[in-house]
Design a protein around this nucleic acid. Structure first.
Lengths: 347, 347
DNA sequence: GCCGCCCTCTAAAGCGCTTTAGGTACGGTT
DNA sequence: AACCGTACCTAAAGCGCTTTAGAGGGCGGC
């Protein structure tokens, strides 16, 4: 057997990372053979492969992600740009769960996640996407927090990279999107309240610009219509904005359906200020079933949605798009109403 | 003026990203000239530079981050590995604020953040660091959630990449670390309670394995000693673990200092279960001043620490380490006690 | 009017991989 | 004995940039 020899003296004294050439030299083969071996390609004798892998192991060599990215024309990383105020993210149960689902999928595929957290301002957000794409830092992009209308969407096709939207765009887009079954969870909350005997049910949602807030609002409206009830008052507010939230309590509503647990706590606080008891005088449902729901007193009846699963599905769809395949089927598990102490029969 | 011409026919029909050669051709210069121009190096005539930049603009060209990474031997990205249970992260005010601070620094330096979110399990966590480093995906690593002792630390020197620890390692390490002034905030809480007249002050902290929990515990102890008081009971618990938290209330303590707002809410709930009023029968202080503090009822007296500033400083130290410079000075702004309704004079 | 210098720009190598196009040796056919 | 396949493996190009060495031209000084 002829051994492959290079003239370069093997100065392995350097402390920098070994290269494929170092491994090749040590295993007595060409760099190409090393490449074939580590990538599990045919054309390498089993014992040669073993020798190569051993050499790589001994040297602690792993192929440079950068060099690979250059030759394979893909970085094995995807980007997620979040253009939300950090303060708004703090109590958001969605973000962390969604992120962990994304990670689960990406890690399995050996992809990395590039996270960009920006102060809000759509223009900035879109520009960030485009910069990431133009620099070729990522193979694809994940979009979330869809607004209606969303100014980012028209610009998306210019990005020239696979993009998957996590959410349901209002306007028609040529970009694939993935949505989970969060809104139907509202129906469960309404039905629960109706079955308790409530006839006047209000809605308290977050910023109306968000599509997911609108979807929940619509679900609330539909569920009321299905129950033959008229829609009670609707208020949009930020967490803790108790003045505005309090206006909900001026009407006849005996129950409030909220689009988040933090908002539900805001209602509870506002009710208490007015001397109303929860759930005696007012029933309140939260959403997301965050740890908050248990900490609140009374503990909040809430809706649990599997956002990790959603994140995993969105990431899977993106990986498929990158591979040029159709997105895998996603059947979200149905949201689950968790009954706790914040709902009861009306007085 | 001689124009640079390549023999390659300019087939600009392809829809793939333009390369430096395309820009060079369009501007009538060599690729090297383009490189010099976009990197603001001397040796390019002003009008040539303008012509090159215009060509780049017209083509929508940005240098490939991948190719750059290969030649410059740096990726312009840093990694952050979080090995915490997502459920634990959900109510954590630290995480999001810290992240936004990191982003602020990185964005200014045109660095990207590679985030890895892992299920806990230290072995896994360290391996993730090493894989990221070995593949050359990042130029440096940020470590947080320091434990005592932390099994990751001894392995850190093998990583062969700049690392900065955000937190205070118990064992001596040769890796630079950055810490913020969170623990002294506890002293403020204790002093506040003492000034209200409390003599028996308990401590409720999160998992004792975390160094930051220990630091807060120590600060509590020191503050009590300084006030000439004996240390009340200490309990470590997870958010919502009210059974264990309740044991705090069996003793003589008239006040509880907590290491997070979520724990403070847990105490409040446990107290209420036993028929104790907050703050009438029991004063409680939270920590972090998360949005929770305002939503809770009573609103929580809490300690605000600027974690964004901390994240920014940690990232700055890492960038300095990458550049081979000493870390910039960091003087954290002092924590601020925010007095709200959960503390009052003892009965 | 020639030399030398500076300014501007190009040629070409090289970063660490992957991949295509062979090339060699060995065994089995005709 | 010449031939063909197959199995392994190597040479070399190329990914898109940066960078070093050096080429060419204009200009001032003598």
């Amino acid at each position: 057997m002829r051994r492959y020899v290079t003239l370069r003296t093997a100065v392995e004294t350097s402390r920098s990372r070994p290269t494929i050439a170092d491994v090749a030299r040590r295993a007595g083969v060409s760099p190409a053979a090393v490449s074939f071996a580590v990538n599990d390609r045919p054309g390498v004798a089993p014992e040669t492969r073993a020798r190569i892998l051993a050499a790589a192991q001994e040297l602690g060599w792993r192929p440079s992600a950068t060099a690979r990215a250059l030759t394979e024309a893909r970085t094995r990383s995807v980007g997620l740009v979040l253009a939300r105020d950090p303060a708004h993210l703090e109590l958001d149960a969605f973000f962390v769960r969604f992120l962990s689902g994304i990670e689960r999928t990406l890690a399995a595929a050996d992809y990395a996640l590039l996270l960009k957290l920006l102060p809000p301002g759509i223009e900035v957000g879109a520009a960030a996407y485009e910069r990431l794409a133009a620099a070729g830092r990522v193979d694809g992009l994940l979009l979330t927090d869809v607004e209606r209308p969303d100014p980012r969407l028209p610009r998306l096709e210019r990005v020239g990279l696979p993009v998957v939207i996590a959410g349901r765009p209002e306007q028609p887009v040529r970009v694939p999107w993935v949505e989970t079954e969060h809104a139907p969870g509202i129906a469960g909350a309404v039905e629960h309240l109706v079955s308790l005997g409530h006839r006047d049910i209000a809605f308290l949602g977050g910023a109306p610009a968000y599509e997911f807030v609108q979807a929940r609002l619509a679900a609330w409206r539909d569920a009321l219509a299905a129950a033959g009830l008229r829609a009670g008052p609707v208020v949009h507010a930020a967490d803790g904005e108790s003045a505005r939230v309090g206006t909900l309590l001026d009407g006849p509503a005996s129950a409030v359906v909220c689009s988040s647990d933090a908002l539900a706590m805001t209602v509870v606080a506002a009710a208490r200020e007015r001397g109303l008891q929860v759930p005696g005088d007012l029933s309140v449902t939260g959403f997301d079933d965050s740890p908050l729901a248990l900490l609140a007193s009374p503990a909040l009846t809430s809706v649990r949605v599997d956002y990790a699963e959603f994140g995993a599905a969105a990431a899977a769809a993106l990986l498929a798009a990158i591979a040029g395949e159709p997105p895998p089927a996603f059947t979200p598990s149905p949201p689950r109403l968790v009954r706790r102490a914040s709902t009861a029969q009306p007085a």
